[in-house]
Simulated scan of single mutants.
Amino acid sequence: MSTILLVEDEPQTREILSSYLQKDGYHVCEAKTGNEALELATAVKPACIILDLMLPDLGGEEVCREIRRHSRVPILMLTAKSGESDRVHGLEIGADDYLVKPFSPRELVARVRAVMRRAGDYLSLADEVQIGQLSVSMSEKRIRKQGVLLDVTPNEFRLLTTLIRHPGRTWSREELVTEVLGYDFDGYDRTIDTHVKNLRQKIEDDPKHPVYIKTVYGFGYRLESPELG
């Protein structure tokens, strides 16, 4: 039975979400504050964290940053902020998905399943994957090029590992939004282009003539490397 850490200060919301998660077969640990969440994240080692941004002590963003210093546990953020910039910021600091209030408890359970499935997909790969000059560590969530550690964001790491799982497959932008960013947002699929551009700047010798991530014009992207192993 997987353990979910539910961080929510509103008692009624916490009770409802906990009930739905338990019905879906999860063991739920509850935290009402950011400090309590950090303590439980270390002690319990949950399979997934549901993290409300508005907490009475530490903000959810600060909690997320602190957890990301030592853990890659999937984090699903809950917030009343619906702006595009808020979504981007939450994902960039390390969240795996972003759910805007109000939402249905059934949708939350589905999102939890999805982020845990994606995390499982990454773990199913060999711990160390070599692709050309790149070395990708699944356990460390790090990418090195010719032994030099690259400064990549969580989204850039998820983008590369998503492509690595299916080398040669062409992914549409919409598919990559779902796999990498973890949510659907009308008109937002082009944000993948920005992530690809930024990742190419870090992994390619010549970003304008990429070797690893190829553009399939009018559709999306694919990983192209016969050296993957």
Rank of each mutant, 00 (worst) to 15 (best):
T42V: 14
T42S: 11
T215W: 00
I75M: 09
P11C: 04
T191K: 10
R173W: 06
A43N: 11
D9I: 14
V196I: 13
V63I: 05
L78P: 02
D121V: 07
P105G: 12
G25C: 05
N198D: 13
Y98V: 03
E107Y: 01
D97R: 02
L58E: 04
T162K: 02
E61Q: 13
L17W: 04
K45A: 12
S19L: 14
G168L: 06
L125A: 07
Q133A: 15
L55P: 00
R106Y: 03
M54L: 10
D205M: 13
R173G: 11
Q201G: 11
A37C: 06
Y122N: 08
V44E: 09
G218K: 06
R72F: 09
G132T: 10
Q201T: 13
L228D: 10
E10A: 10
I16L: 15
L53Q: 12
E10L: 08
T170Q: 05
D121I: 08
V136N: 05
S85V: 08
L160M: 08
I93M: 05
E175A: 10
R169Q: 14
I75L: 12
V196W: 07
S71M: 03
T13S: 14
Y122K: 11
P56D: 12
L40P: 09
Y26Q: 01
C29H: 09
I4C: 03
K23H: 13
Y188I: 13
L55H: 01
D96C: 05
L163F: 00
D189P: 01
C29W: 04
G147H: 05
V112I: 02
E156F: 01
K101S: 07
V177H: 00
D193Y: 02
V148F: 04
S124C: 05
M54S: 15
T3R: 13
E107H: 05
P46A: 15
P11R: 03
E62D: 12
F103T: 06
I143K: 02
S85Q: 08
S139C: 12
N198E: 15
P167E: 08
V211L: 14
P74L: 07
P102F: 00
E61W: 09
K197Q: 12
D127I: 12
G120A: 09
H89L: 06
L159K: 05
T153H: 02
R169W: 01
E8I: 08
I67K: 09
R118H: 11
D206S: 11
K101G: 03
L134N: 07
H209E: 14
A37H: 03
Y26S: 00
V216T: 14
D24C: 03
S2T: 04
G83C: 04
K81A: 10
E175T: 06
E36I: 07
G83S: 15
V148Y: 02
V109N: 00
L125E: 06
M116D: 04
L176P: 02
L21R: 05
M54I: 13
E204R: 06
V180N: 10
T13G: 11
V177P: 00
R142T: 12
D121S: 07
S124E: 09
I203C: 01
A43R: 10
L53Y: 06
P74E: 07
D184I: 12
D205T: 15
P74Y: 03
D193Q: 09
E175Q: 12
S124Q: 12
S71R: 03
G220M: 10
L40W: 09
G83D: 14
Y98P: 00
G90P: 04
D184K: 13
